[in-house]
Computed example of a mutant assay.
Amino acid sequence: MADAPDHAQRGSVHYRAMCDFVEQARDRTPGKLEITQEGIVHDMRVPFGLHELTAVRVRKRLERMMPEELLAHTGTPDVENVPHGIMRHPDIMVIAETDMEIDCSFDARTLIAAIEVVSRSNPDNDWVSKMRDYPLLGVPIYAIFDPRTGTGAVLSEIHATPEGPRYAIRKDFVYGEDVTIGEWTVSTDGLPRYA
């Protein structure tokens, strides 16, 4: 029978192997690769078009209101929590510029919010898996924009449940309404919808 440190070490080795695979495959694989507790998630979305237009419009609207020391960042690196074996890449990360002064993945606990634009190819990744992973990682606010339906939700207030940390508050919205993410309220007017 294995003891706890042995189990943790095997989990860490397994996670590192998945990270190595993701790093090697990233440039040759279309879409986005992320790691969850269940394994590697491959989101086949093409990184442009209506998905990216939504992310750009939301990012610009947020940054107009935020203080200069904060960013609505849409680039790399990933957000990682090694002990939990999770590596995610939010479409938009609200983060302090000083917390980006690192040469590795961002610590998820430094994010103010994670924002996702639902992809056509794998909507459950945003509506199910990330809704579970982001509170586990300690991301205080998770906002979802869904161009398939013209709806979304903002989740906040992490609390303990028997299944693990979850968001206690969920505020749904429809495109055309103003939506509050943290301290900032942005319009959803003019966000594109998938055909």
Rank of each mutant, 00 (worst) to 15 (best):
T54G: 05
S119M: 06
L137A: 09
E68I: 07
P123T: 12
D78C: 11
L70D: 03
I141F: 07
D99T: 08
S119E: 07
R120C: 01
H42K: 03
D124F: 14
P67N: 10
T76K: 14
L71T: 14
E97W: 09
K60P: 00
P123E: 15
T74Q: 10
P47S: 05
P67R: 15
E116G: 01
P135H: 15
G138P: 00
V58K: 03
T110W: 13
M100H: 02
V58H: 02
I92K: 07
Y134P: 00
A96T: 14
R61V: 00
V56M: 08
F145C: 01
I40V: 03
A72F: 12
T98A: 10
I115K: 04
V117C: 02
A113P: 01
R88P: 02
A114M: 05
M87N: 10
M93C: 11
Y142D: 02
D107E: 04
L71H: 08
E101C: 06
M87R: 15
D43H: 10
G138S: 04
L62R: 02
D103F: 09
V41R: 09
H42N: 05
N122A: 14
L71S: 11
S129H: 13
P47G: 06
L53N: 07
H51C: 04
W127P: 00
V139E: 07
R59T: 07
P67T: 14
R61S: 03
N81T: 12
D99S: 05
I40E: 03
H84C: 05
E116D: 05
E69L: 11
H51T: 11
D99P: 00
